[in-house]
Amino acid sequence: MAEVEEVARGWRMLTIDHLTIDSPEGAALYEQVMDLFAEMATGRECRQHATSSSLTLGICGPNAEERIDRLRTRLDDLNPPSFWGGHQWEIRDGAR
């Protein structure tokens, strides 16, 4: 329910699951994610919420959906490969 109200107020969000900082490489990727978010959110109200294995990023205001879409595209390019194939992170629309 809360997410529906936030979307009505102009917020757009995405969540990255399985994003961990358990190595220097993981910390470097986390920093890159945050840098991309800062770039996409420039001049807009933004917020983030993190747990030990997920990160939700939100942008509000004009073109928020376009900015989140561009962020997702850039994150897809950054998403590291999984040991078993595919990618390590699950990136999805919305908040957790």
Rank of each mutant, 00 (worst) to 15 (best):
G61N: 12
E45C: 04
C46T: 04
S54A: 13
A50W: 08
D69Y: 10
C46Q: 01
L78R: 11
L75R: 00
G58W: 00
D77C: 10
D69E: 11
T73M: 13
R44N: 13
E66F: 08
D22C: 06
R70H: 08
A64H: 04
I68E: 12
D76H: 06
E65Q: 06
S23I: 13
E31Y: 08
R44V: 15
N63W: 04
A64I: 06
E66P: 04
S54C: 14
S23L: 10
E39D: 15
D76T: 08
E39W: 13
A38H: 15
H49F: 07
S23G: 03
G61I: 12
I59S: 03
A41Q: 00
S52R: 12
A41T: 01
C60W: 01
G58N: 03
C60R: 05
L29N: 02
Q32H: 05
G26T: 07
T42D: 09
M40R: 00
I59P: 02
S53D: 15
D35M: 14
I68F: 14
V33I: 02
E65S: 09
R74K: 05
A38Y: 12
S53R: 15
E45S: 09
Q48E: 01
R47L: 09
L55C: 06
L71A: 03
L55G: 00
C60I: 02
G61T: 10
L29M: 07
R67P: 01
E66K: 07
T73Y: 15
R47D: 04
A41P: 03
L75P: 00
E25T: 09
V33Q: 04
E31R: 15
D35H: 13
A64Y: 07
D77S: 15
E39Y: 14
D77T: 08
T51S: 14
S52N: 06
A27S: 10
T73S: 12
A28N: 13
G43L: 04
D77L: 10
D35W: 09
R47S: 07
N63L: 05
A27W: 13
D69N: 11
L29P: 01
M40E: 00
A38V: 13
I68P: 03
E65K: 10
A27H: 12
T73I: 15
Q32E: 04
E45A: 07
S23M: 13
C46E: 03
C46H: 08
A27C: 11
A38T: 15
E65T: 11
D69A: 13
Q48P: 07
